[in-house]
Design a protein around this nucleic acid. Structure first.
Length: 847
DNA sequence: AAATTATACGTTTTT
DNA sequence: CGTATAATTT
């Protein structure tokens, strides 16, 4: 875990490299099983190398083999290799695989990690060069938003028109592009409207506010006042410095600035990192590119691995241009293409290739395989989204039995990949009713949950008493009667004395700036924090003026373990009690999460180490053992593979997403197409694409057209399926119904023409001919499966029950193992009995 | 200060 | 339609 405790990594690494050199004489097992292209990429150690690695071509294998080769040949010591990834998961996997290749010989690679963790490490060493202390805190999006909200209101910005998260994404965009506040191009800057009109005297006191001469289209008023977004950005940076804090983008930018302003230091690191490797290079943004270029200058021993066809993060600043430009940026670069695919069948590869070929300006690769053609990509249309979910559910069940001579495929080997997370709901609903276990990847992350963040804010206050944001978060959580008024008093006290909020609170207590209950509660909180701090450090116990909480009056105390300390903090602060007293359905889960948090502390030496880890590592691999179908977005699926993949919702507007096309035009469409390519290439054996003719969008029923990507699937590699149980309804329900529906909605002519044209497209005609009918049918009343006499429900009508997702409710019908339940909050649902528990037991059952 | 009602809005997401 | 925030009430 500890890419951070590198203090003696150098020593350890040097020792390790001796044995590495010794190994050079011996065989090199890491080269075994590499194909010629992979081997070339591994053995070309000097100079710039671009490894263009298509989906499933053994990219990680080649990358790890290359590192192993550098070490095994004694070309580099472990601490001289800088290997950067985007995610912690990727870093972890690489570490494991290198370990497996090298045996125990290499202790660790201190500079293998994410861009952010490596930058955090560098910045802690040199923080003072950018005016920070080395114990700076790393803000998450929530903290950022709070800082920004404050700035916006101070500047009278109209928060209705420019919500904090909007300004926050502006700043993020600037940082992705390595624009400091003074370097924001005028064309990219934004005018933020003020929420009031200044008069001459107030305007004089607001130096950043300008008169905006254009007419306000809303009110018709002239003389609106504005402030530039880059000005807010500048203030934001100042504020972060005051807080001794950085955001994620700053980790990169501060390090870049340090390198740019300190030639000697840069030279030192250039000498130190003799070999640089970068994973997922197509996802790098401008800042990351600059960072890499600074470090690679000189030796140019940089190996970038990526696939321009899998660049799907343009919307968050990734520059495909970086990978397309590589040979220009690094003259003499060797380009190696990995094109042999070890993952998917021939039909699947051919279908994926057919789709991606429609993109322009690719570096170009042709995937091929030694393996079987396998089954064709399957394509199926449904009446609506619910039927699509129903069909996929049944298909998954039959895959479990093994269909058409294929080996059974269990839930763990199946994934459903959607374009947008809201598509998951239809599947969740369906799977819940048929009792198909599933797992959703990519929901709210563990460390982003409210209770976890609250708990960590307590830890932060104890670890660093001047962490104002953390103090602000916990001062009235749980409710202590310290509302806006009390907090304003504390703020004022802190500001006028130039101290932290905690010290401000201490002063407020001493000077009795508050009264009654507020004073008592604040006194207690301040004393408690002092007490916890003492528990952390050990030694003489601090004796507060009003210290009625601490029962024993020991003059000295021993330092508690950080785990005990965490428990004490959560307990004494009343935070645990707050959730125990909470009657909402999510309260038991939150308590469970808190327990998990404390458990997670075990793998750390102290609270500081834990907090550093958490601020950079936001992933939480749930370790459940039950086989489950995976439900996730296409974005989340990159890098993964499954024997069977379902790709539902291939409808124009949904996928490709209308918004992408509107906002980014052809570029956006091409990125969507790459997403389609990523989706198809996740499948090893079976890939099933589907669409619905009708779908509910924001509550309104809308007729949908099959995705244009469906037309791009090469016919020879696609098999069109027809759902079972069809009767009547000859062909092309959507073809006839949709345009009519379109006209009734009175959309403009151009759009109608464009849409009508789809029906003349070769792909659609082909499908019509091939199928005769396309599986469109009226939704038959879904008859629920007959009652299994063996299945005796543990519940009866009238029982109070609790459900993990829907909360509390009352059983209103029982049909075999299926229950009809009227939920208090979620309405009426049909659910399989094993997903609910008797309501009185809900409090004790850890889900 | 909590509970309730109104209203706006509605990809993709890691660090 | 459903959720998440804001505004309003009690």
């Amino acid at each position: 875990m500890s890419s951070f405790d590198d203090s003696d990594a150098f020593e350890a690494a040097s020792a390790a490299s001796l044995s590495a050199r010794a190994m050079a004489a011996r065989a090199m097992p890491h080269l075994d099983g590499l194909n010629p292209a992979q081997r070339e990429a591994v053995e070309q150690m000097e100079g710039p190398v671009l490894m263009l690695a298509g989906a499933g071509t053994g990219k990680t294998k080649a990358l790890t083999a290359r590192i192993a080769h550098l070490l095994a040949t004694g070309t580099a010591r472990p601490n001289e290799v800088l290997a950067v990834t985007f995610t912690n998961k990727a870093a972890r996997e690489m570490k494991n695989r290198i370990g497996a290749l090298m045996g125990q010989a290499v202790e660790g690679m201190p500079w293998l990690g994410t861009f952010h963790s490596i930058c955090a490490k560098l910045l802690r060493r040199h923080a003072e060069l950018v005016g920070l202390k080395s114990n700076f805190t790393i803000l998450d999006t929530d903290d950022q938003k709070r800082v920004l909200k404050n700035l916006l209101s101070v500047n009278s910005v109209d928060e209705k028109r420019h919500p904090p998260r909007w300004v926050s994404s502006f700043i993020e965009q600037c940082k992705n592009n390595a624009w400091t506040p003074d370097k924001v191009p005028a064309a990219n800057d934004l005018e933020l409207w003020c929420d009031r009109i200044f008069d001459q005297s107030t305007l004089a006191e607001a130096p950043n506010v300008y008169e905006f001469s254009r007419r306000n289209p809303d009110s018709g008023a002239v003389g609106r006042h504005i402030i530039m977004a880059s000005t807010i950005y500048a203030q934001y940076q100042t504020r972060l410095r005051e807080l001794n804090a950085v955001d994620f983008g700053d980790l990169l930018l501060h390090v870049i600035r340090i390198f740019q302003e300190n030639d000697d230091l840069l030279a030192q690191y250039q000498r130190w990192f003799r070999y640089i490797l970068v994973d997922e290079y197509q996802d790098t943004n401008v800042a990351q590119y600059l960072w890499l270029r600074l470090l690679a200058q000189g030796h140019s021993n940089i190996c970038c691995v990526g696939d321009d066809d899998q660049s799907i993060y343009g919307w968050r600043g990734a520059e495909v241009g970086n990978i397309l430009r590589f040979e220009k940026d690094f003259p003499g670069a060797k380009v190696v293409r990995l094109e042999q695919n070890y993952r998917s069948t021939g039909h699947i590869l051919a279908a994926a290739s057919g789709v991606i070929e429609a993109n322009k300006g690719r570096l170009g690769k042709t995937l091929w395989t030694d393996g079987d053609d396998g089954e064709k990509v399957r394509l199926i249309g449904h009446w609506d989204g619910e039927e699509e979910a129903r069909w996929i559910g049944e298909e998954i069940e039959s895959m479990g039995q093994g269909t058409r001579g294929m080996d059974p495929i269990g839930p763990n080997d199946i994934a459903i990949l959607v374009r947008a997370s809201h598509q998951m709901r239809a599947f969740e609903d369906r799977f819940l009713t048929i009792g198909l276990p599933y797992r959703v990847i990519g929901g709210p992350r563990f460390y982003e949950r409210m209770e976890i963040r609250d708990a960590m804010a307590y830890f932060r206050v104890v670890v660093s008493p001047d962490d104002d944001l953390a103090f602000e978060r916990i001062v009235n959580t749980p409710k202590r009667g310290l509302g806006d008024k009390a907090q304003a008093t504390i703020q004022k006290m802190a500001r006028t004395n130039g101290v932290s909020l905690l010290d401000g609170a201490r002063l407020a207590v001493e000077t009795k700036a508050l009264s009654g209950k507020g004073l008592k509660e604040l006194t207690r909180l301040v004393d408690q924090i002092g007490h916890w701090r003492a528990l952390m450090q050990g030694g003489l116990r601090q004796v507060g003026p009003v210290d009625d909480l601490i029962e024993e009056d020991r003059p000295t105390i021993d330092a508690l373990s950080h785990i005990e300390l965490a428990e004490v903090i959560l307990d004494e602060s009343g935070y645990t009690a707050m959730w125990q007293n909470d009657k909402t359905p999510e309260a038991p889960g939150r308590l469970e999460n808190l327990k998990e948090l404390v458990k997670a502390l075990e793998s750390f030496e102290n609270l500081q180490g834990f907090l550093e880890h958490v601020s950079l590592i936001m992933d939480n691999e749930a370790d459940d053992h039950e086989p489950k179908v995976t439900l996730m977005t296409l974005h989340a699926a990159k890098g993964l593979e499954f024997p069977a993949v379902f790709l539902p919702g291939w409808e124009d507007g949904l996928f490709p997403s209308q918004r992408s096309m509107d906002e980014s035009g052809l570029k956006g469409l091409e990125e969507e197409r790459r997403l389609a390519y990523v989706g198809i290439t996740r499948a090893e054996k079976v890939c099933t694409i589907s669409f619905a003719g009708n779908r509910r969008v924001y509550g309104q029923w809308q007729s949908q057209l099959p995705s244009r990507f469906i037309d791009e699937l090469p016919e020879a590699h696609v098999e069109v399926l027809t759902p079972p149980g069809l009767y009547g309804h000859q062909g092309g329900m959507a073809a006839s119904a949709s345009p009519v529906a379109e006209m009734m909605r009175g959309s403009d002519l151009q759009e109608k023409a464009a849409r009508a044209d789809v029906y003349n497209s070769p792909g659609w005609k082909r499908l019509q001919q091939n199928q005769g009918r396309f599986g469109m049918r009226q939704p038959s009343e879904a008859k629920n499966v007959t009652i299994d006499a063996e299945a005796i429900s543990a519940f009866s009508v009238g029982d109070r029950v609790f459900h993990q997702k829907f909360g509390y409710g009352e059983v209103i019908s029982v049909e075999g193992d299926k229950l009809g339940i009227a939920f208090d909050k979620a309405g009426e649902k049909h659910v399989v009995g094993r997903f609910v528990v008797a309501a009185d037991a809900a409090g004790d059952v850890p889900f």
